[in-house]
Design a protein around this nucleic acid. Structure first.
Lengths: 226, 226
DNA sequence: CCAAAAGTGTTGTTGTTACACCCATGC
DNA sequence: GCATGGGTGTAACAACAACACTTTTGG
């Protein structure tokens, strides 16, 4: 008789121009790994789909709704949970952190954003899961304009620049980067400007999802690597 | 109390210059979907890892050992199996079909290669799984030289050409294709030649895995799309 | 000598990279 | 008027795509 439980866990990334990339973690209320930080997640209910389960756990444990969610990988080593055998189907999510108040509920004692360069010790094999998610994040960024899921609806071009600079971990040429992005045609230049700190006010841009999906459906391959 | 079973299923592709791309299917011995064709797979045992489970099922149901295996995706809709709820972690495999005799055992009545253009009706949601696997196959082919897992150790260049032509589903320019592949430097030209049918005998080549992994580790990105 | 498949270079076009100065604003 | 960040074009170079004839073998 098979004795395996099925869980879901989520690696949700957020970005803020000031702080860089962060990941959503919750503090466990119960054993095992009580009071340790972990990825939000939990057992799947009998009647719900995997994706529904992830969204429910994110709502319950951290009070957030993500704008982008896709399946990441399934982890199923026999010893990854000290209680029973648990196979965890993990998901990869993106969100604009500024738009959500975190609020821990049910089996989380706390929920917080952690900069990916200053991570605490994580429960279970969650460090490994996070490593896979980061690899996916960098990979996707290079081939799809997912940066837009991480930025505000309207944003100055420099936010996009900074985001790529942080994720690629090297400087980019501002002129070339802008040329390339603009050439794809899925960015709309707005009339509005905004002034963040010092310097000349910046034009605001917004992502045109419709144009993006048209291009994508027609088989276009974005190459934003640089 | 959670009542979910965990299974694994495998989509294994093979290639033969004469027949094109084929996928390994087994004929189910028992209900449900008795005597229908399905992907090899089955429930995971309590103590084995997911990958071990796939390899065991491939051995048991079809008598083969694959040369390449990676996780594909997990399918977990509540109604995908008429008996219980089953979450299936699926794997993607590649093999040189000529090197293995298929032999059905345990809960398979038969095991056969099916050309991907002439598929029978499949059990469960296996048609959907296969569609995801084909997408992965094409995607991987474009960015990694996985073609070599599907060819014999030593092969004439034209086999590689044909493989890409079939998978990309359009003609490729032989000169440009060869130039690009050779430029990566992970192919070794051998002294041997072979004559398949008519025409001039062909030089044999072999894949240099060591060089390939060196290149890959150094962050190189292959682009074999054409 | 004909049919079949293998082998092989050049050129125009396109995309990529490198690079530096001026502009608009707040203080 | 100076500090801060925003905005912009060109030229050299590399990669890609298009293109057709010759070579070697078997029958």
């Amino acid at each position: 008789m098979q004795q395996i439980k099925v869980a879901v866990d989520a690696v949700v990334f957020g970005y803020e121009p000031e702080q860089g990339i962060s990941v959503l973690l919750i503090k466990r209320k119960y054993e095992p790994y009580q009071k340790q930080w972990a990825l939000p997640g939990g057992l799947v209910l009998n009647e719900e789909s995997l994706e529904t389960a992830v969204r429910r756990e994110l709502k319950e444990e951290a009070g957030i709704t993500v704008s982008y969610l896709e399946q990441l990988y399934s982890f199923g080593e026999p010893d990854r949970d000290p209680r029973n055998r648990v196979v965890s189907v993990t998901y990869f999510g993106l969100v604009r952190p500024g738009q959500h108040h975190l609020s821990a509920q049910t089996d989380a004692e706390d929920a917080e954003w952690f900069n990916i360069k200053k991570l605490p010790k994580l429960a279970f094999d969650h460090k490994e899961i996070l490593a896979v998610a980061l690899k996916r994040l960098r990979g996707k960024l290079a081939y799809e304009p997912i940066g837009f899921e991480l930025l505000d609806k309207k944003f100055p071009f420099s936010d996009l620049e900074h985001l790529y600079q942080i994720l690629l971990d090297h400087d980019i040429d501002r002129r070339n980067f802008k040329k390339k992005i603009i050439s794809y045609g899925f960015l709309e230049e707005l009339e509005e400007v905004v002034q963040k700190k010092a310097g000349r006010p910046a034009r605001l841009y917004q992502f045109n999802k419709k144009k993006y999906f048209e291009l994508k459906e027609s088989g276009y391959n974005f190459d934003l690597f640089y």
